[in-house]
Structure formats: structure tokens, C-alpha cells
Design a protein around this nucleic acid. Structure first.
Length: 266
DNA sequence: CGGGCCCCCTGGTGGC
DNA sequence: TGCCACCAGGGGGCCC
């Protein structure tokens, strides 16, 4: 579910409200999240420490602890980090003087682990530069060169750019006037530059609207984002293009649905 | 390297 | 109303 803007919204909420929070315990309530031994080890290393920083790389969230450890979370499709009491979370962090933080996750795809803070993170994940804070148009343009894969698939590849998912890729492609199935390597240099800036604009706007909520995404307080209200193509197949009124079409690219305007996007 | 599958899970929705 | 196939903000693995 959450892409870069959604994870960033959560991160900012944590910075505001949990910086310095004193961890009392970590409870793993869903065995699939980690073995008993892992859960025990995580708790032992985190209890009594403080949360000193909240970092994001792509769609990964890192909670940095005062003992040089980093608790890494990836929410996948339906993961939510919620403050206060929550029905049946998969994991719960309790604090001395802050409300609980829970990981709720209907589909149970989310993953967590603990790793040394100074180590490269997320460990064992080949991740490209963060799409908003690390990527450069030059490297992006170079990365697309010669690629035969569809541009939408390339944007979803976290090794090229970290943080872009199915929503923001579709939006950026619409704004850049490019069809999702277009071969990545066929883009002219100017088109690659345009796409990069539209991508960053789409992500930035997503953050400004506190993320996109189709169904599951929620912020720390359980509130939905509002970015979906301005999306031009995402989840709008069969409806009129906001530019030209043509009927928007859906295609499957890289196993994912992408909506585009057959007239505005080439 | 690329594409097309399948898998991990659960639940909402739309069609019949 | 009831049932069911299909679909979903992600990503990894496998085979060809």
C-alpha cells in the first residue's frame, strides 16, 4: 500500500511525536513476523532505549535507537503504524510516557527486523537512490538507457529508484505524456528529464496531501490521506481524461494495472 | 536481462 | 440476498 509519500507522512508524524520516546517493550503478536527467539532478542535490545531518529529510504522506515540499533519496517500492501490502542496488531511497541505504537496489517505482508544503525540499510536489499532525496535526473536518465522493459516496470523497480509504486508511477507517466507500456530505452533525453521532474512533483504532492488512501493507508492517527482526490489516472479506468475527455484505459504492465489516456499519452 | 507466472495473505466489491 | 471470481499502494522467486 504505502509508497514514498505515505511512508514519509508516517515518518514525519513519528518525528513530531515520538522523538526521544523511551521504549518499555516490544511485543511480537504474530509469529510470522519473527521467531520467538528473534522477538526476544529485539525486545532485549530495544527495551530501555530511546528512539532518537526516524529515517526513510524508499518505502522502508528506520527507527533509530539510542544504542546504535535500527528497527526497520516495510509496510508492504496493508501495513499501518497506529498510535494508541489497536484491535489486534501484529506487533506493539510500548513506551514509558508515550502511547503505544502498533503495526496493524490485514494481509500480513509487512516485515520488520533489527540491525546495527551504522550498517547500510535496509540490509540485504539492493535499493537504488531514494526517489525524492537522493536521485538525480542524470543517473535516472542513464539508468533508463538501453532498457527494453516498459517504463512503468522500470519505475516500479526499486533498484533504479527507491520509493515509487503503482500509484505515483501512473500519475507521473500521465503528467509526462508517456504510456506505461512504452519501452524505457526509447525515451529521448528530454522525455527522461521531464519524467523525472514529474515523478518528483507527484511524490511531493502526495506528501503535501498526506498520502493516497484507496482503502488501507492511514496515518498514525488512523486518518486517511487526500491525495487520491487529485489523481488523474490512478483508479480512474473508464472515466474521462481530465485533459481531453477521452476514456481512460487500463493495461497490465509488469503484472500490475496501469491506467492511461490513449490520447494524451504516447 | 526480460517477461510471465506463482507465491506470500485477507477482505471488499461487482457481477450474476 | 448469496456466492464467487477478481482485485488490491509490494516484492521475491522460479522458469523459459
Amino acid at each position: 500500500m504505502p509508497e514514498l509519500p505515505e511512508v514519509e507522512t508516517i515518518r514525519r508524524g513519528l518525528v513530531e511525536r515520538y522523538t526521544g520516546a523511551h521504549v518499555r517493550s516490544l511485543e511480537v503478536l504474530d509469529r510470522r513476523l519473527g521467531t520467538h527467539a528473534q522477538a526476544r532478542a529485539w525486545h532485549d535490545r530495544m527495551a530501555g532505549r530511546r528512539l532518537t531518529a526516524f529515517e526513510r529510504k524508499g518505502k522502508y522506515l528506520g527507527l533509530v535507537l539510542s544504542n546504535e540499533m535500527r528497527f526497520v519496517i516495510h509496510l508492504r500492501m496493508t501495513g499501518q503504524i497506529l498510535t494508541g490502542s489497536v484491535g489486534k496488531p501484529r506487533l506493539r511497541l510500548r513506551f514509558q510516557e508515550h502511547p503505544d505504537l502498533s503495526l496493524a496489517d490485514t494481509r500480513r505482508f509487512a516485515e520488520v527486523w533489527l540491525q546495527p544503525a551504522q550498517a547500510e540499510w535496509p540490509s540485504a536489499v539492493p535499493l537504488g537512490p531514494d526517489a525524492l532525496t537522493e536521485a538525480t535526473p542524470q543517473a535516472f536518465a542513464l539508468g533508463l538507457r538501453g532498457k527494453r522493459t516498459a517504463i512503468h516496470a522500470a519505475l516500479l523497480d526499486q533498484r533504479l529508484l527507491a520509493g515509487v509504486g503503482n500509484i505515483y508511477s501512473q500519475e507521473a507517466l500521465f503528467q509526462a505524456g508517456l504510456r506505461p507500456a512504452r519501452r524505457a530505452g526509447s525515451l529521448k533525453l528530454a522525455q527522461r528529464g521531464r519524467l523525472f521532474s514529474e515523478l518528483q512533483r507527484a511524490l511531493q504532492r502526495g506528501i503535501e496531501h498526506r498520502g493516497t488512501t484507496r482503502r488501507d493507508y492511514r496515518d498514525l492517527d488512523g486518518n486517511p490521506g487526500s491525495a487520491q482526490t487529485w489523481h488523474a489516472v490512478y483508479d480512474r479506468a473508464g472515466r474521462p481524461c481530465l485533459n481531453c475527455q477521452s476514456t481512460l484505459k487500463a493495461v497490465t504492465v509488469a503484472g500490475r494495472t496501469a491506467v492511461f489516456c490513449p490520447r494524451c499519452q504516447r
